[in-house]
Each structure stands twice: as C-alpha cells, then as structure tokens.
C-alpha cells in the first residue's frame, strides 16, 4: 500500500531533479526544485515525520527557494545558452565520474540495507510530531539549537555586509 504512494512520489521527485539540472533557464530550474521539494515533503509524511514535512515546505520551499527566485530576478540573467555545457577536456571525465558515483552509491546503500530493515520498527504514536521533536530539541539538543541560532545571526550579518553596495 505504501509502495503505491512511494513510487509515484519518488519518480516525480527524480524527474523534477533531472529537470533542475538540464533546464535552460534559471527560473525553470528554480520552479522544478520547488516541485521536487514538495515531492520530498510527501515522502517525509509517508515516513511519519510530519513536523519535518511541514518544515520542508515552509522553510525550504517557502523561504529558501523564494530567496533564490528573488536573486535570479534581481540579476536579470539572460538565458544561459545551451543551459549546460561541459568543458571539452572534461567530458569523459565527468561522465565517467557520474556513472561511477551512481554505481558506488548504489553498492553502498545496498550493503547497508539488511533484511531486518525491510519492515519498519514500531514507533510510538507521537513519532515525528512537533511535540516529540520540540521536546528533544529543547532538552537533549539545546546546545546545537542555540549554536544554530548564532549561526543564523552570523549568516544574516554576513549576507548584509556582502551584498551591500559600495556607496558610502
């Protein structure tokens, strides 16, 4: 049953990811990326990680991708001719690397997934809810949480400084 939901979602996500890479213009890539993220949010829900699914939609698809769109539209880029191009010297190298990568990753993942992981473990009812995630975030993992906030502050300041115009 879950497989029926999983396969279409996964397929759509992969196709959209492909489209991100092989799209001619940047806006098209951004839109495909949004779609991919929504698909992933669906996969999260399938895995009963509800909180993170919501976060994915709000933060990733909602804030980060919007930022991307802003910048693309700000820069007002012309169409990238041919969309993608490999350096002549690197064609074979890159292709080979890609193939190799896929093969290795496949092998990697395959050996990791043992038979006993074929069925998911029994999880409590509040698995993946905001309550559970929030509790552990504020008790076990409070330090990374705080550090992350400082990181965000630093990123904010850095972004402002970097993007400031040179005037005054």
């Amino acid at each position: 049953m879950e497989l029926l939901i999983f396969y279409p979602l996964a397929l759509v996500s992969v196709i959209l990811a492909f489209l991100v890479v092989f799209n001619k213009n940047a806006i098209g890539s951004a839109v495909c990326l949004i779609g991919m993220m929504l698909g992933l949010a669906g996969v999260f829900v399938l895995m009963q990680a509800h909180f993170l699914a919501i976060l994915q939609v709000i933060v990733y698809a909602g804030a980060i991708m919007v930022l991307f769109m802003f910048v693309i539209m700000l820069l007002n880029l012309k169409d990238d001719d041919k969309g993608w191009k490999m350096r002549e010297r690197n064609v074979w190298l890159t292709s080979g690397t890609g193939v190799l990568m896929i093969g290795v990753l496949y092998k990697f993942m395959d050996t990791t997934a043992e038979a006993e992981f074929n069925s998911p473990a029994t999880v409590p009812d509040n698995f993946g809810t905001a309550e559970l995630v929030g509790t552990s975030l504020f008790t076990d993992f409070v330090l990374p949480f705080e550090v992350a906030s400082i990181l965000l502050l630093a990123a904010m300041v850095g972004a402002v400084v970097l993007a400031k115009s040179k005037v005054d």
Partner: peptide
C-alpha cells in the same frame, strides 16, 4: 582557478575513498 575542475576533483576523491572503504 576553474571552479568546476575543483568540484570534479573533489567528487573523484570522494568516490576513491568510498571504493577504498569497501
């Protein structure tokens, strides 16, 4: 000075490490 070459070399290194670890 060519960024994509750097990225390529990084990926190749990563694959190499993975193969070695297996």
């Amino acid at each position: 000075g060519f960024v994509r070459n750097y990225a390529l070399i990084m990926v190749m290194g990563f694959i190499f490490l993975m193969i070695v670890s297996q």
